[in-house]
Amino acid sequence: MRQGFLSRVGTSLAPWALPVLLVVAWEIACNAGIVSQRVLPAPSQVAAAFWAAIWDGTLFEHVGISAQRALQGLMIGGGAGFFLGVLCGVLRPAEVLIDSSLQMLRNVPHLAMIPLVIIWFGIDEEAKVFLVAIGVMFPMYLNTYHGIRTVDKGLIEMAKVYGLGPFALFRRVILPGAMSSVMVGLRYALGIMWLTLIVAETISASSGIGYMTMNAREFLQTDVVVLGILIYALLGKLADVLTRALERRLLSWHPAYQVKGRTA
């Protein structure tokens, strides 16, 4: 029994073995002088920089402003993408009118618009939010549209025979049917959201994590640069965890998301 417990703990810790080993090796390499501090700071230095940034409050300020930009952009762009996806998926005339234009725009890398965006909005908040919004709109649009288009036609026919009106049909058949695809779109959108924000904040900003790292570069504070990168990784992971939780909740009916031994 004790053996079983130990092996279970071992299995759950195993995925962490490699990262921990890597960090230890990194620390040793830095302390032994094999790696120059100007190239890569020791993990202990990064931790110290983390600690200092927490104490003087700058970290929360930067993370807060970055998260705010990310969420605003996601809301606006994701909302627009979802709305257009629903519109084109449900209404044939809307599809004819809008879809081919969106497909054309989709192929323009949204980061190529940075010069134009700076001319339009300067380097204010709007520029970053706009870029994020444009970036997340297309994956949301494509996946919502695709999800709605691939809802089982038999279920739609059944709903009509059983007297569901257009609103009930959308709410109880089409939307839940498209939901797993919409969630895929959301996860793509989250990835693009962070990517866009990093680029936008690195190029032109006076606050945010991107600004923090670029500012640190000026003063050769490699520990802060590495800290910024790590924080991006953590925020990305956090967004992923939240999406998974949302998925589990919205798709609880799906056999792939069901907890064993629980049926409802």
Partner: peptide, 23 residues
């Protein structure tokens, strides 16, 4: 008029009772 299809055509995201009372 009600129709029973070859396949049951239940909504997988509704519980049994939600399917029966689909309207």
């Amino acid at each position: 008029v009600r129709l029973l299809f070859q396949d049951a055509r239940l909504l997988p995201w509704q519980t049994v009772i939600g399917n029966v009372g689909v309207a």
